[in-house]
């Protein structure tokens, strides 16, 4: 299965009841898979008239208490930011998949990681965060979709799966394991007011102090997520003198590179953030050895590197190597960047 198809299949198995999307490369296989398989499973699929309509349809389905998702790629995700902000403000769960492509503007359809800031720092207006998960294999993408729906319901917050074109279009073997699906009670959902006071879903709060109160509530929620939901993978960090930090498809290339260094007994390791927000600062707090240097490698010109610097609080050197605009850092370039740090 391709990453796109694995994500779609996992969504259906995780109980996604509503999908709306709009065509954009490189995530079209996902929409096509949903178009075929959602109706077959008695779920709702809509090809929306725009990304704006799609995300606002997700808002509606979620308000009605149904697990809902949309998917797109970078330019389309920019359009969806309006809806994501409203989802965060109205505390509605939703899953948004961004299979990133090169930007800015229309850019190109090659893999890219240039939307890290947009995904992790809010993206739309207002003081909010989406929970952001980044898979680096088809199998992991499948598994993380179950987590995405679960976290969305648990925190009543939008969750974004941040992948890149490489992951979306790549095919790998996948075993379709059943995932964990918890049914969260949704007493706030709009189903008609029979036997209870009317429910109102809103993000407009004009009364004195009401909006601050909502913001404080959101911040409390984000703090809880920061404590409980940090996820990462590490390799050879026990003795590593250089730790390369990379996520998603980029981390796979790093793994190949690290294997080569280890074969020569060079102490190079990897931290691969899986939750990009909350950022896995705990992975860096564990590294108390004085000798460690970090190299952040991204398919961007330096976005996640800022979070790494914050995580190590400038106590260790943090270097960066990246290429973007559809260019992917090559193994040779990464090896050179690591060797530069060895000196």
């Amino acid at each position: 299965m391709t990453g796109n198809e694995a994500i779609a299949e996992a969504a259906i198995r995780a109980g996604c009841g509503f999908y709306a999307g709009y065509p954009i490369t490189p995530q079209n296989e996902l929409t096509a898979y949903m178009a075929k398989n959602m109706p077959e499973n008695n779920r709702v699929f809509i090809q929306a008239e725009s990304e704006l309509a799609a995300i606002n349809m997700v808002f509606g389905a979620s308000a009605a208490g149904v697990r809902a998702m949309t998917s797109s790629s970078s330019p389309g995700i920019s359009l969806k930011q309006e809806g994501i902000s409203y989802l965060a403000g109205a505390e509605l769960p939703a899953v948004i998949v961004n299979i990133m492509r090169g930007g800015p503007g229309l850019g190109n359809i090659a893999p890219s990681q240039s939307d890290y800031f947009q995904a992790t720092k809010g993206g739309g207006h207002g003081d909010y965060h989406s929970i952001v998960l980044s898979p680096s294999s088809v199998e992991e993408a499948y598994g993380l979709m179950f987590d995405a729906f679960d976290l969305a319901d648990k925190y009543r917050n939008p969750v974004m799966i941040l992948g890149d074109g490489m992951l979306g279009q790549m095919m790998e073997p996948l075993s379709l394991k059943p995932g964990k699906v918890i049914h969260y009670p949704k007493p706030w959902a709009l189903i008609g007011c029979q036997g209870r006071p009317a429910n109102i879903i809103r993000s407009l709060l004009l009364k004195d102090g009401a909006l601050e109160e909502l913001n404080l509530k959101l911040q409390k929620k984000y703090k809880a997520a920061q404590e409980k939901e940090q996820r990462w993978e590490e390799q050879f960090t026990d003795d590593a003198e250089i730790i390369v930090v990379a996520y998603g498809g980029m981390a796979r290339i790093i793994k190949s590179v690290i294997r080569q260094f280890r074969q020569k007994n060079k102490k190079v390791g990897l931290i691969r953030p899986i939750s990009l927000w909350p950022f896995p600062v705990k992975a860096f707090a564990k590294q108390t050895r004085k000798k460690v240097k970090y190299l952040v490698v991204e398919m961007s010109y330096g976005q996640m590197v800022e979070d790494v610097k914050l995580a190590v609080n400038c106590s260790r050197p943090v270097e960066f190597f990246g290429r973007a605009g559809g260019a992917i850092p090559a193994e040779g370039e990464i090896i050179a960047a690591i060797k530069k740090l060895e000196k």
Binding site: A90, I191, C193, L204
Partner: peptide, 9 residues
């Protein structure tokens, strides 16, 4: 209105 209601953008 005293029935279920949501805002929309």
């Amino acid at each position: 209105w005293d029935f279920d209601c949501t805002e929309a953008a």
